[in-house]
Design a protein around this nucleic acid. Structure first.
Lengths: 151, 151
DNA sequence: GTAATTTCTAAACCTAACTTTAGATCAAGG
DNA sequence: CCTTGATCTAAAGTTAGGTTTAGAAATTAC
């Protein structure tokens, strides 16, 4: 056993709970970068378990994969991230989460006064102008205020 | 002009800000049910403006279209919904929203203590067991805890 | 009464985030 | 050495939530 043969993709999958196909997909999206062994198979570092765990958590917070990649780009590239490194990027994650919670809370507080009254049919209703509307959830092209449809 | 010719789909689109194609799509998903005029064109009631507005608001809250359809099913089918009817179903909406906010808040409160510590690599971490994980956001098949992948 | 709009349907296309499939190659156990 | 299991790549399929396109029929406007 050499000091560092690395983890095979199946082992990493078992450690993280992710599907093998998902890990390959994340690589294609630039979220993780394994090296290859002599036979061309992917090998991962121990630290990648944590990296993928972070990806999963950030996803629960509603970040898209490109957003997560961006957050991860603040990790040092030249060495294995330390606990402090992880703590540092968690700050950025936390800020996004705080904003999301604020938006939902604001929306909720408007709900009671708004539904049932006339404003539900008006475009100026407070519920119609959230900040992060277009990206709030789901995928696919989405027509939203200020994003003119063809017809 | 008869008393009730109804709104054409284009008019409804202008009133709500939705694309015509989206309105047809919502019909296919069972969210709205127009009638047809002699020529086969869709006609809508005035109350449908509010119905679609509700759909848009519920979407911002993160509900999927099937969920919204379910919420809307509590409206009276035999008559035009009254303001009180709308208020009633808003309660159901608010409950879901409260839960979502709670989940996010709990997640956030765990974040600082969790990232950077060893638990980030462990499946038992508090961040790994949210209630509504599978449906929290995004689309497509998603392998998540308790939903075994094939390989 | 004709021209310009709208609307109709069905089917194809789009994005995000993955999974499935197929056929080939690698690695490990006996 | 051979067999079994793990990986590899590329391409196609899936879901949600829509949009685009094409050709035809209905409405509206003049």
């Amino acid at each position: 056993m050499a000091v560092s043969e690395g983890l095979a993709i199946g082992a990493l999958a078992r450690r993280t709970g992710l599907a093998v196909s998902a890990i390959r997909y994340y690589e294609a999206q630039g979220l993780i970068t394994p090296w290859r062994n002599a036979g061309g198979q992917r090998r991962y570092q121990r630290a990648d378990i944590r990296r993928l765990s972070f990806v999963m958590i950030a996803q629960q917070f509603g970040l898209t994969l490109p957003e997560i990649r961006e957050v991860l780009s603040d990790l040092p590239g030249n060495r294995t991230p330390t606990p402090q490194d992880w703590k540092d990027i968690s700050v950025s994650l936390r800020a996004r989460l705080d904003q999301r919670i604020d938006t939902l809370t604001r929306l909720r507080d408007n709900l009671d006064g708004c539904i049932g009254c006339g404003c539900l049919s008006l475009p100026k209703c407070a519920l119609y102008n959230p900040d992060d509307r277009a990206k709030s959830h789901g995928s696919g092209p989405r027509y939203l205020m200020g994003d003119a449809p063809k017809t």
